[in-house]
């Protein structure tokens, strides 16, 4: 038996590591990967809450798992478009460093 709170704490830890990686990393692909890490942390929280809701009501509830299903679909679409944008940026600027992609910076 594992308390569901442990799963939620793990999800919070993964999300915070994702936020830290998003701030530290200078490579645009790694920044994008830390976004995926944060999405995965949220998915874990959704599944843990879905399990808790099942236990509270006494019978199986899959609403939280449906949420995760849709998050996965949107994440797949987002990864395809995002990586295409990264390829386009690399073609135009010939760098992957986010500090050098500052055309819109004041």
């Amino acid at each position: 038996m594992v308390p569901i709170a442990y799963y939620l704490v793990l999800s919070a830890v993964l999300f915070s590591i994702g936020v830290a990686a998003f701030l530290i990393k200078r490579n645009i692909i790694t920044v994008f990967m830390s976004i995926e890490l944060m999405l995965n942390a949220v998915n874990l929280a959704f599944i843990a809450f879905s399990r808790q809701w099942s236990q509270t009501t006494g019978h199986l509830q899959v609403n939280g798992q449906i949420f995760v299903f849709f998050v996965m679909v949107v994440a797949a679409a987002e990864a395809a478009v995002g990586l295409a944008i990264i390829i386009a940026v690399f073609r135009a600027r010939n760098t992957l460093n986010v500090d050098q992609i500052d055309l819109m910076k004041l």
């Binding site: 038996m1 594992v2 308390p3 569901i4 709170a5 799963y7 939620l8 704490v9 919070a12 830890v13 843990a48 399990r51 808790q52 236990q55 509270t56």
Partner: peptide
């Protein structure tokens, strides 16, 4: 988040 989850651990139940 860790504080809230752990202090309400009893209401979340056991898996």
């Amino acid at each position: 988040l860790t504080y809230i989850f752990l202090s309400h651990s009893a209401t979340f139940g056991q898996a």
